[in-house]
Design a binder for these strands. Structure first.
Length: 107
DNA sequence: CATCTGACGACCG
DNA sequence: GCGGTCGCCAGAT
């Protein structure tokens, strides 16, 4: 299985926006669902914004030391956290509506 | 070849 | 809202 399409798709995610593993899996019709997307991200080559891919509901599924780093990268992009999760209502990215998508204001 | 192990997510109590 | 279970499936041991 080649992850190339997955990385190409993930690279489209704008700064300050996030998606979920399940979403990636559905968008690309990956067999095996979100877990397959997770495997792809675990082998992420440089240049791919892996930190913008979260678990369902906006939770971080990475473990230390990645989780800390991921949280830091997201915060740096102005992504707001509500406890241990990302405020999906505000940052979730919908490719179909990408035309209007722009970084949330007031960081 | 048998098992275990996940960067998942839907369900259920 | 939270933790446990189960289906899924490719790699590693």
């Amino acid at each position: 299985m080649s992850w190339t399409p997955v990385y190409r798709w993930v690279r489209q995610i704008p700064r300050g926006r996030v998606v979920t593993y399940g979403q990636v899996a559905r968008a690309l019709r990956l067999p095996g669902g979100g877990r397959t997307a997770g495997r792809a991200m675990a082998a992420c080559p440089p240049g791919v914004p892996w930190h913008r891919v979260l678990g369902a509901g906006g939770c971080l599924l990475t473990r230390e030391p990645y989780s800390s780093f991921q949280r830091q990268l997201l915060a740096r992009e102005g992504v707001e956290f509500l406890g241990a999760r990302v405020n999906m209502a505000r940052h979730h990215w919908h490719p179909a509506r990408a035309r209007k998508s722009r970084p949330p204001r007031g960081v």
